[in-house]
C-alpha cells in the first residue's frame, strides 16, 4: 500500500520517528511543524492522508482541520496528548476520521493509517478471524464450527463495523446507519446490541479483542488479533 501522507506535529523527534516508520512501509511522507505550514503544503499538493497533532504553535490543529473540511474530505487522523480532552470529540465532530492519543505505539498508528487509506467502497463479504467467520451476504456466522444465531439488527451493526475494519466508527455513525439518522438517542440500545455481539462472537466478551470500544466516541473492529 502506498500513499502520500502529511504528518503535522511540532515535536521534531516525533516527526522523525513517524517519518522513518511510514517510509519503511512504503508511504511518501512530508512533515510540517505548524498549522500554517501544513495548510500551505496541502494547498500545493493534496496528500492522501493527514496525521494532525491538535497542539500546534499558532494556528491550532482544530483550526487546520476546519479549514481543510471547507473544501476537502481527505482522511485526517488526529493525534493529541491531552487525554480526556473534549477537543478530540470536537475534532471528530468537525470531520476528523480517527483519533490517536499520545503517547502512541507506532503499530497503532500504522494500523490506523492503513485502515484510513483503504478505499471505503472496498466491501467485505466474508470475514474470517481465528475465532469466528462471518458471511455478510448469506448472514451466516459460525464460531468454532458451530452456527451462531445473530439478530437482524446485530447483522446491521456488524456490517457497518466490518466494512470499516480498523477505522473508528462513531456512535452517531453507527446509529445513523442502523436505525436511521433521525434516531440519535439510541446509544443505550447500541451498547446492548454490541454486548450481545461480543457475547456471541468474542472468546472473552469481557475483554473484547475484535469489537473494541473507544470510550465515549464509538467502536472499532479489528479482524486481525492485534
Amino acid at each position: 500500500m502506498s500513499g502520500r501522507i502529511l504528518v503535522v506535529d511540532d515535536e521534531v523527534q516525533i516527526l522523525r520517528a513517524v517519518r522513518t516508520n511510514l517510509e519503511a512501509r512504503g508511504f511518501l511522507v512530508t512533515t510540517a511543524q505548524s498549522g500554517d505550514e501544513a495548510l500551505r503544503f496541502i494547498g500545493d499538493t493534496v496528500p492522501d492522508l493527514v496525521i494532525l497533532d491538535l497542539e500546534l504553535p499558532g494556528r491550532s490543529g482544530l483550526e487546520v482541520l476546519r479549514t481543510l473540511r471547507t473544501w476537502t474530505q481527505l482522511p485526517v487522523i488526529i493525534v493529541s496528548s491531552r487525554s480526556g480532552d473534549p477537543e478530540k470529540m470536537v475534532a471528530l465532530d468537525e470531520g476528523a476520521n480517527d483519533f490517536l492519543a499520545k503517547p502512541f505505539a507506532m503499530g497503532d498508528l500504522i494500523m490506523r493509517v492503513r485502515a484510513s487509506l483503504r478505499p471505503v467502497d472496498d466491501k467485505a463479504t466474508t470475514v474470517t478471524t481465528s475465532d469466528f467467520t462471518l458471511d455478510l451476504v448469506q448472514r451466516r456466522a459460525s464460531r468454532g464450527g458451530e452456527v451462531v444465531e445473530l439478530a437482524p439488527i446485530e447483522w446491521k451493526i456488524l456490517e457497518v463495523l466490518v466494512n470499516s475494519e480498523g477505522r473508528l466508527v462513531t456512535d452517531a455513525t453507527l446509529i445513523g446507519e442502523v436505525w436511521g439518522p433521525e434516531l440519535v438517542h439510541e446509544e443505550e440500545s447500541l451498547r446492548r446490541h454490541v454486548t450481545q455481539i461480543r457475547r456471541k462472537l468474542e472468546p472473552e466478551p469481557a475483554r473484547p479483542r475484535y469489537f473494541r470500544t473507544e470510550p465515549g466516541i464509538g467502536y472499532r473492529f479489528y479482524a486481525a488479533n492485534a
Binding site: E11, Q13, K102, P103, A105, M106
Partner: peptide, 24 residues
C-alpha cells in the same frame, strides 16, 4: 506539567515501539 511529561513520553514511545515492530 502533564503536557511537559507527555511530550517526551510520546517521543520515547514512538521510537521504542518502532524498534519493536516486526513487519520492518
Amino acid at each position: 506539567v502533564s503536557h511537559d511529561l507527555r511530550t517526551p513520553l510520546a517521543t520515547i514511545e514512538a521510537n521504542v515501539s518502532s524498534l519493536l515492530a516486526n513487519d520492518v
